[in-house]
Design a protein around this nucleic acid. Sequence first.
DNA 1: GCATCGACTTGTCACGATATCT
DNA 2: AGATATCGTGACAAGTCGATGC
Length: 548
Amino acid sequence: LQLRYTDGSKWRFLEHKGPVFAPPYEPLPDKVKFYYDGKPMKLSAPAEEVTTFFSKMLDHEYTTKDIFRKNFFKDWRKEMTSEEKSKITDLNKCNFSEMSEYFKTQSEARKQMSKEEKQKIKEENERLLQEYGFCIMDNHKERIGNFRIEPPGLFRGRGDHPKMGMLKRRIRPEDIIINCSKDSKQPKPPPGTKWKEVRHDNKVTWLASWTENIQGSIKYIMLNPSSRIKGEKDWQKYETARRLKKCVDRIRTQYRDDWKSKEMRIRQRAVALYFIDKLALRAGNEKEEGETADTVGCCSLRVEHIKLYPKMDDQEYVVEFDFLGKDSIRYYNKIPVEKRVFKNLQLFLENKQPEDDLFDRLNTSILNKHLQELMDGLTAKVFRTYNASITLQQQLKELTCPDDSVPAKILSYNRANRAVAILCNHQRAPPKTFEKSMQNLQTKIDEKQNQLSAARKQLKAAKADRKASRDEKSKKIEEQLMKLQVQATDREENKQIALGTSKLNYLDPRISVAWCKKFGIPIEKIYNKTQREKFAWAIDMAEKDYEF
DNA sequence: GCATCGACTTGTCACGATATCT
DNA sequence: AGATATCGTGACAAGTCGATGC
């Protein structure tokens, strides 16, 4: 594994144009009124801007939630003049409906714009992209990931977030730290403004940063996944996972052994690691209570998140998991475990309340320090990468039939991908139009079937003569029918599964590239343009016999 | 130790662009 | 051509994990 620099520096030269700021606020036309307690009221520009954020969200259920309304109102009041503050004291007396209607009309008008107008906007976007969307890092022109600063608005967050509704404030040049090389042409702040700071730190990869006001965390402008710097890191990640492959047997033997340890902390560590390995759970850092939604990973599991069943149906020692993970996505699973694990879990639960930690002698820092001793560079998340990639490889081996048609092989590929997505709990809400789209597909299949039987009848009728051409025809229809059926199967199986995240973040792309080469599948069938750019390094590198 | 910070990866979703259907 | 379904992309939130400071 050969990286560009070995001294921890990430680049030698970095030049860019700085970020693009959100457009300034445009006050509402006077005819669009806000009403308080039934009476029209003209607001100061800062207070008015905040109401526009709220009125654009009125159709969303969350604007009815207490926390959202409370947070919004509190932050809105901060933007009011003292006069406004004394008048506006109750959100329930606020009427935003004219504003809401106005924005609906506006967005309708945007949809109805002429081709020329739309084209003009497109060109302006393209111009911005060309000017601000690229940088020079070392000797290469690279695409920047997010060169636009996030506009102000109301924070939503995911799940049951205690800060939902808070005002995400506007970011100004004075908030921005620029990072570039000393010998580069420095980006200019907009006229009449200054950057917070310009620094030259080549130990980091970001071009600009600012502190966000909801959680107080830092946000960055970084390069696109197609860039050298991201690609190298990605490659490195999969190489670490491949090193785990070489020693995973040893590690498994060890943690099974540790289930018998005299020390509680070691047993807990060993059981947690077993879950991380077997179920691909995330590490589970501690979170500050009240700052974020209540979600957990492995190390932060609480007693209330698991149930133990000594017997369930025809299985023994079943553990039922039910908790909210990252992004408040529910993880629900029932799995039989080994007797020793089960007995350990019973022990961990003794004398605890539902809200107590399951692994009270363990956290991610302890776990990762242990893993580091087992293998250089090993952390909890490497298990997810390793298990995802090895599963894809195994499933592809198992499911691909060399004699299948291309669409059938791609179904196999998607099924292998699906196995991984299920392992990693990458779910999605079934698309709103799912049932209908399945019906449409079925209609097409029926039609195709009718076509086929008609063609076959014709063939029979004209058997003796001109056989060849008719035979070709039914063959073609058969092929189309098969393609439709494969499509239907794939869609049905994918109803609640999201393949994107695993494809982008967990599956060593060289496995997929090798599979394509081995079975003569064009790479475009597996990766779209963006994905091909991200995985260019793998497409270059992997041959048909690549083994993860 | 442990709390916090900083840098980076991973995650979902909405929306506009594009393909396909009528 | 216009309507509708599907896809791709960007937005931006939420994780992981090592470093830092007490």
